[in-house]
Write a protein that binds this DNA or RNA. Structure first.
Length: 878
RNA sequence: GGAGCGUUAGCUCAGCGGGAGAGCACCACGUUGACAUCGUGGGGGUCACAAGUUCAAUCCUUGUACGCUCCACCA
């Protein structure tokens, strides 16, 4: 016997472990069935999962479980990402609490510490993933730094280098002065910052004129190499070719003409600091300007500035310089301003453009086939509009800076000879051999100190996890993946790069056919969840409180395509209630002997006698179709909506209520009730895996788990011809009258139906016990004779119903009720009449639409007539 | 500056060329043996605004207003 309420805590772990231990999450590379592959975006090993993870893993799990049930050989490839910067920061912070820096430890010992932390953190994440029911093939789990994936990284680096697509270059990079590493453009975020716009007066050499430039960063004056004005700018034309003398510094720099200068902006004259500004760098290159670096790695002033500034932190230097400029009269107007300042997305400090040697990927070249693949439809974005975002970025892609001055990550497979000659090989041995050939003798090589951008290894995920560079069975079978499920925030970071690498290394084959971009989870006020805001909902807390099934269902129900998802607890609560509803429906069946150990074979529609059974089978069919279609087109919310309403509205509120009076005597009803429950447990399984397994086992006593059950197929036979809606309409109408009239529950009037044809009489008669129970009637009679005094009346379809309520009926209330109904029908009728009076409509609208409107108009008119005469009677009886 | 998205019931959101929907909240009645984590009934919306296309517009087009996001931008 089932307990009164469902208790998730005691059952979730049981069912999860049982299915995992039976190996039911595993793919089978030797299967004859078609594979279905999802590459799980590997979470960072930096702590714990948030609601965004819960969403993405739930959606993927729904897809995996659905396709597994459809008979596909499902591979959900899991794993974790080493997350270079993020992870190194976490461990460094932990060390800092003990007063240790990573340099104290040294590279090797530090990396050892990170590995230790990875083991611990990775365990937490895995625990969370399992808790929400993720049925990934955990045996195949990979880590971006494990041996095989590291091999893949080296292979890719070397091949791209030898193909000329990876190269070393000296150019401006985004330097993070806190983390002390270069970062890519994508890791820079612009933040609006309050600041000032200062005007600086630079005296023109050999003249009394000054040229005024404006800047938000006066300290970069130390690195100024020119002042640029627009070639067409009349104000400055006579000064082009002359020099100015930098205040304080005394260095002399030229005034140049360059169209980069914008006449409208500032004073129209702009200082050029080629070593510390991306635009200025380009200007400098055009004019052959030198680059003067004025910062050290901490963004403090270096030896290239006047001695009394050397060593000052950048903002201290700014203050000191402003004071000095003020004193010598070189400082002009100051304005408050708000401007965007580039910050490191991890460190949160302003980054400095800095001139350095770094390694780059020629992304523009790799992007070409990746763009074409989407253009030609080999990979499809869902929703499609994200393609535009993808194209936009890919078509303007910049060289990808892949080297990082970190310790945690894939060490760059590059060795330098004594004279700096570069050897790029997969192993030190190979590099040494190459060096020996080059030098003609054995030499000592130094490996590049840097590591690769985390996303470099992530980009290989779709094939590296399948054993590439080996030509494995798995690679052959599971690549390309069927769908990648992720949020739009990493289209650039990850999706685009997997496309590029996949196309290049997998013989032009895309890494996945579909990219489903889902919403981002926000809190109920629409704020992004973040630790600093304190609005983070921990998936584990919520599963503890409401059960994993409820959380999963909520996420699926709210996952409408491509929007923010505002999560609120009341919504989760409502789906927890939904689980309870299902539980209790099952409990009702159990109590009434509907469940036999043999399970429930499919009923044969031709042999059924009860209209309600045909009806529910038909509704089940419709629901199967809706859910299958919705999942296959990634409309998860529609799938959730379909099953929710089928279970609650159709199955519980109508079907079970209908069969209650006849259940004891009707084996047919017991059978169909059980069969439909068995089917809907399957339909719900991808969304609510735990409660469905529990009910399936308890009620149907089967050893076979739902996770491997066959997905229900809609049968063609069970189309509804029962006109059950006539009966539900009668019940609803009577309930409404009773409610409005405050008819006591104990009153069981006899319903009189007038004007019903034989077909309608048959339907009602077949359902009579149910109708009487649901509408609380003592009997139903068909009679066209006039209703007695004090009868509440209504009109449905083409017949009239009368509910004799002598002694109860309040004539004033009844009059008001009828008037309201008539008014509503008249409004509807006049709209329909207007439409049908329009010749354009009659001529051009599809015939089915015209017919439907005519039918509705007739129905409304009948209703108006019937209710109108009922109203006259009421008035007469008052 | 460039691009995209949104504006539908009190709140959060679906829908999307032919009868305005859900969940929650609200009001009334109700514990009749599956379920109060419930049942029944009800109230509540000129689908932001304007013009256009169409027989027909919440839905398509254009414009306006407001809000949001991404990209670019340290004069």
């Amino acid at each position: 016997m089932l307990e009164k309420t469902y208790d998730p805590q005691s059952l979730e772990r049981h069912w999860y472990e049982l299915s995992e231990n039976q190996g039911l999450f595993a793919c089978n590379p030797d299967a004859s069935s078609n594979p279905y592959t999802i590459m799980m975006p590997p979470p960072n090993v930096t702590g714990s999962l948030h609601m965004g993870h819960a969403l993405t893993f739930t959606l993927q799990d729904v897809l995996i479980r659905y396709h597994r049930m459809c008979g596909r050989d499902a591979l959900w490839q899991p794993g974790m990402d080493h997350a270079g910067i993020a992870t190194q920061m976490v461990v460094e912070r932990q060390l800092a609490e003990q007063g240790i820096s990573r340099r104290d430890l040294g590279r090797e010992a530090f990396v050892e510490k990170v590995w230790e932390w990875k083991e611990q953190s990775g365990g937490t994440i895995l625990h969370q993933q399992k808790h929400i029911g993720a049925s990934a093939d955990w045996q195949r789990s990979r880590f971006t730094m494990d041996e095989g994936l590291s091999e893949a990284v080296k292979k890719v680096f070397v091949r791209l280098y030898k193909d000329g697509l990876i190269y070393r270059d000296k150019r401006l990079i985004n330097w993070d002065p806190k983390l002390l590493t270069a970062i890519s453009d994508l890791e820079v975020e612009q933040r609006e910052v309050k600041g000032h716009m200062w005007q600086l007066h630079y005296p023109v050499e050999g003249s009394s004129e000054v040229i005024t430039v404006a800047t938000t960063r006066p300290e970069t004056m130390f690195g100024d190499m020119a002042v640029a004005v627009h070639p067409d700018d009349e104000r400055y034309r006579h000064l082009v070719g002359q020099n100015v003398c930098l205040p304080i510094v005394g260095r002399v720099i030229p005034i140049i003409a360059d169209s980069y200068s914008d006449m409208e902006k500032g004073t129209g004259a702009v200082k050029i600091t080629p070593a510390h500004d991306f635009n200025d760098f380009e200007v400098g290159r055009r004019h052959g300007l030198e680059l003067l670096n004025i910062f050290d790695q901490h963004a403090a002033m270096n030896e290239n500035v006047p001695a009394d500034y050397e060593g000052l932190e950048r903002f201290d230097a700014r203050r000191k310089l402003l004071a000095a400029l003020g004193e010598c009269g070189a400082l002009g107007d100051t304005e408050d301003t708000v401007h965007a300042v580039p910050h490191g997305d991890r460190s949160g400090v302003p980054v400095e453009p800095w001139l350095m040697d770094q390694w780059y990927v020629n992304a523009a070249e790799l992007a070409k086939p990746a763009i074409a693949a989407v253009r030609d439809g080999h990979t499809r974005f869902v929703p499609q509009r994200w393609e535009k975002t993808y194209f936009e970025w890919m078509e303007n892609i910049q060289p990808w800076c892949i080297s990082r001055q970190l310790w945690w990550g894939h060490r760059i497979p590059v060795w330098y000879g004594p004279d700096g000659t570069v050897f790029v090989e997969e192993t030190k041995e190979a590099a040494s051999a190459a060096a020996k050939t080059h030098y003609g003798r054995d030499v000592t090589l130094d490996q590049d100190e840097d590591v690769l951008d985390t996303w470099f290894s992530s980009a290989l995920w779709p094939f590296s996890t399948l054993g590439w560079p080996g030509r494995t069975k798995e690679l052959n079978r599971y690549y390309p993946g069927d769908v990648l499920v992720t949020g739009f925030d990493i289209i650039f970071f990850w999706v685009a790069r997997m496309m590029m690498m996949g196309m290049y290394f997998m013989d032009g084959k895309v890494p996945f056919r579909d990219v489903y971009i889902h919403a981002l989870v926000r809190d109920e006020f629409g704020q992004k969840m973040s630790k600093s805001k304190g609005n983070v909902l921990d998936p584990l807390d919520l599963t503890a409180k409401y059960g994993a099934d409820a959380l999963r269902f909520t996420l699926v129900a709210m996952a409408a395509q491509g929007r923010d998802l505002k999560l609120s607890e009341t919504r989760i609560e409502s789906y927890r209630n939904f689980a309870t509803k299902l539980w209790n429906a099952a409990r009702f069946l159990e109590m009434n002997g509907c469940i036999s150990d043999k399970g429930a074979p499919p009923p044969i529609p031709e042999t059924l006698h009860e209209p309600v059974n045909l009806w529910i089978l038909s509704e089940l069919n419709t629901t199967i179709r809706k859910i299958s279609t919705a999942i296959e087109s990634y409309r998860f919310n529609e799938a959730a909506d379909a099953i929710y309403h089928f279970v609650w509205d159709r199955y519980c509120d109508w079907y079970i209520e209908f069969i209650k009076p006849v259940l004891k005597d009707s084996a047919e009803c017991r059978h169909v009730a059980a069969y439909v429950l068995a089917q809907l447990l399957k339909l719900m399984h991808p969304f609510m895996p735990f409660i469905t397994e529990e009910l399936n086992a308890k009620l149907f006593g089967s050893d076979a788990l739902l996770i491997t059950a066959q997905w229900p197929v809609a049968s063609h036979q069970a189309d509804d011809n029962t006109n059950l809606h006539i009966v539900t309409d009668i019940v609803s109408e009577i309930r409404m009258i009773r409610a409005e009239m405050n008819v006591p529950l104990k009153a069981l009037p006899i319903l009189q139906i007038a004007g019903a044809d034989a077909r309608i009489q048959a339907v009602i008669t077949a359902m009579q016990p149910s109708v009487c129970r649901l509408a609380r009637l003592s009997d139903i009679v068909f009679s066209d004779s006039d209703f007695e005094k004090g009868t509440a009346r209504s009109s449905l379809h083409r017949f009239e119903i009368g509910l004799p309520l002598a002694g109860i009926l309040d004539f004033a209330v009844e009059k008001a009720r009828l008037e309201k109904e008539i008014k509503a029908s008249e409004a509807e009728a006049s709209k329909l009449a207007a439409k049908l009076g329009n010749e354009g409509f009659l001529a051009k609208a599809p015939p089915a639409v015209v017919a439907e409107n005519k039918r509705r108009l007739e129905q409304e008119n009948t209703r108006i007539d019937t209710l109108g005469s009922a109203l006259k009677r009421v008035i007469a009886e008052m």
